[in-house]
Design a binder for these strands. Structure first.
Lengths: 337, 337
DNA sequence: GTGAAAGCGCTAACAG
DNA sequence: CTGTTAGCGCTTTCAC
């Protein structure tokens, strides 16, 4: 690969000048500029991003920490984040923590500030302490789609009003006349869906309905867990006419459980999820769900991170994305009893 | 962030020595080693990966080019690739080309050899010429899950026997007694599924069945396209008892079309796909499909790429992964007429 | 064993 | 306007 100085000597100038024409800095004579450009073209010169990063003291990469990029929710976020990053001249490194704090910490220690200029953190089971530590070391951190507004994150974050998402789901079910509702709350690992559940409970309370504790299954955030839990719930409480799931994956599992139990959705039982992942519209019946603003959250997260990178020492404000939206599809309908 | 020389002066040695103990190179006196380690610990020193990359002339990153990481097939590949890369001390940069050759070329020009040491290419609509050019510039390229064994790739690649995958699917359907089979072949964009279709046709021929051209829909690789095409196919050919889809997404669309048409799967119509993406096991009925060795392909691709990186000028051999496997689930059954 | 010095490719003052 | 001069933080001969 040709270097700057090779281009320089071909053009009969010095590397500083070449750098200047390439970065459009300083003033360069029109003819030398042309000469340099010709040399660049002739040699097929491309700037060495690693060298540039070292010299500038700033790498053109951002890291995205997720538990697993194969989790159906992350790819859409990652796509939006990568696009936003690239639109700003940055590249995105994807790190799968596998929900293992040790792996996560190792990633942070390795790349934060040394290879990537900042880090976006999705639900990757990283400790706030580790994150604060990497922030103190100079690599900005942005929590993405933060769900616990009451627990001060102590770190910049993009928050989504998951309480409202839960409330919307609850109101939808109640509005349809459902009085016996089962709930699927995940994930067990980090109890991160508590906010959604609280929102749902608040909707019940507001309608004067009470939700008995034993109608809630605390489960993992997966189709399989939703499937099993729904079967158990329906066996214990045959009178249920609806299922509130704190996430789409368990909701989809509930759909399958209903089908395998010979129940018709939504005639016999209504099911609602939260998030609106890709599959939600593709299941049969298509899943009614509360869409969360994933794309805008990703864009905001990248914007916030870039802000923090450009202005070190900035205060760590929390930004909030658009309100979740009910997406009414075919898995919910009026209560029949 | 503390630097090597800061650690060095704390330990009362020179940076070369610190480097030696950290890289476990050369011989270092046991006591100096301990002293250095203590200093590293005390300062919380972490090697600056960008600086190291520049000095070593080798970046610790690999790039993965995909059309869109949100396409349901890529995340599983990306997960496996990232794990394999990280197991070898490399980080993975994800690049979404959006199927746009211009975007793809820009990515290659920017990072290949300057920020990432090599590039993995999934179906990203990049021209072979562009790829060969980046290879010539010194950044190894590995084509992942290459499907056209007859068209010499001229580039190192991991090939999957998609012809056999198609044949397996065809044999399965024929073995079940199906004589009137419709075919969904995608994607239209790059005609990349031809091999799968050929395999399917060969299975028909081997069984003495002929597949009329007008029973094939050439479509995009999506659930929606599969849905529409299945409806059209079924309308034009009501006698069809099975659908062969060259990919799972259209197969899932076919499943939905059958459901919306009031057809029971597999009693009225059998449907088979190829790939075995995550959703395949989650649909109702669960999709019978021919699983492709995604994970091993990803691992082999990373291994090949690392080989090429470590041994420049190596011959570009094609490596082949495991044979596709039939995964019999609930969407296929005996022909009833 | 350990240190001195050069250099990876580029940027960023500062001179001229 | 353009060239000179230092580095960025680390690795790597090559002496001592």
């Amino acid at each position: 690969m040709p270097t700057l100085s090779e281009v320089a000597s071909l053009a009969g100038v010095t590397s500083a000048t070449v750098s200047n024409v390439l970065r459009k800095r300083g003033k360069v004579g029109e003819q030398t500029r042309l000469r340099v450009l010709a040399a660049v073209e002739q040699l097929g010169y491309r700037p060495h991003l690693t060298a540039r990063a070292l010299a500038e003291g700033c790498a053109p990469t951002l890291a995205l920490m997720v538990s697993s990029i194969a989790n159906p929710f992350y790819p859409e976020f990652a796509l939006a984040a990568e696009r936003a990053a690239h639109a700003n001249g940055r590249f995105l490194i994807v790190c799968n923590t596998n929900d293992d704090p040790v792996t996560g910490r190792a990633y942070l220690d390795q790349i934060a500030g040394t290879l990537s200029e900042g880090v976006l953190v999705m639900n990757a089971n990283l400790s706030i302490d580790d994150l604060k530590k990497t922030e103190q070391r100079g690599a900005p951190v942005v929590l993405c789609m933060w769900e616990k507004p009451d627990a001060p994150p102590e770190l910049p974050c993009i928050a989504v009003d998951f309480f409202e998402a839960g409330a919307i789901a609850g109101r939808h079910l109640i509005g349809l006349g459902h009085q016996h509702i089962g709930a699927l709350v995940g994930s067990k690992i980090n109890g991160i869906h508590a906010e959604r559940y609280k929102g749902y409970l608040s909707a019940c309370a507001a309608a004067g309905q009470k939700h008995p504790q034993n109608r809630t299954g605390y489960i993992e955030d997966s189709v399989e867990a939703g499937y099993e839990s729904t079967k158990a719930l329906l066996k214990a409480h045959p009178q249920l006419t609806a299922i509130f799931a704190s996430n789409d994956l368990p909701a989809l599992g509930a759909l399958n459980a209903a089908a395998d139990l010979g129940l018709k959705v939504p005639q016999d039982i209504s099911i609602i999820g939260i998030t609106d992942i890709q599959w939600a519209r593709l299941s049969r019946p298509a899943l009614t769900t509360v869409a969360v603003p994933t794309v805008s959250a990703a864009e905001m997260a990248v914007a916030l991170l870039l802000d923090l990178i450009s202005k070190p020492g900035q205060s760590a404000a929390m930004r909030i994305t658009a309100t979740p939206q009910l997406i009414e599809r075919a898995s919910t309908g009026p209560a029949t009893c």
